[in-house]
Design a protein around this nucleic acid. Structure first.
Length: 152
DNA sequence: GCCAACGTTGGC
DNA sequence: GCCAACGTTGGC
């Protein structure tokens, strides 16, 4: 099993929104960055990921999700009414993909970005690299366990 | 292929 | 709201 981290702005789509979805499952649409898309293409059913809240008062990891459907075309790219519309992503040759993810649980507390930045043991973790803006990134098994260990 | 201009992300 | 750090676009 591989581990991931996926960012979402809570004002747009929060961990609570995911929990409220039917079957607690949602499309992870709107990714418009090639590196992030390629990470989604590498995901396997059953992989786990951190749900990260970005661009908010307390940025950090708030929960855990599971990949329940592997990458397939992101239909919002075909929809002129969508803010994620991409005229360069033709339906016969889709440029952008999404995965389906299911809510597993909330963390008992938010593990903040500020806190993670202070851990030298997380050196090399993409999230805490300076200037990182990637919205979907891998997490090593070691880092996954280490971060979960911070929860209590 | 270079690179300046522009747009976006996201912490603070 | 500011702005640093990137990514993308498009002229040449």
């Amino acid at each position: 099993m591989n581990y991931w981290l996926m960012k979402s702005e809570p004002d747009v789509f929060s961990i609570d929104d995911l929990q409220r979805e039917p079957k607690k499952t949602a499309h992870w649409d709107g990714v418009r960055n090639y590196q992030a898309r390629n990470h989604m293409r590498s995901m396997n059913r059953g992989d786990h990921g951190f749900f990260y809240h970005s661009n908010c008062a307390e940025p950090g990891i708030v929960g855990i999700l599971e990949v329940v459907r592997e990458a397939y075309p992101d239909h919002t790219a075909f929809d002129p009414a969508s803010k994620y519309y991409d005229p360069n992503s033709a339906t016969e040759k889709p440029r952008w993909d999404m995965v389906d993810v299911r809510f597993i649980r909330r963390l008992r507390r938010t593990i903040t970005l500020a806190e993670l930045r202070h851990l030298s043991s997380l050196d090399g973790f993409a999230l805490v690299r300076r200037g990182n803006r990637l919205s979907v990134m891998p997490v090593s098994a070691d880092h996954w366990q280490l971060i979960l260990g911070l929860e209590d």
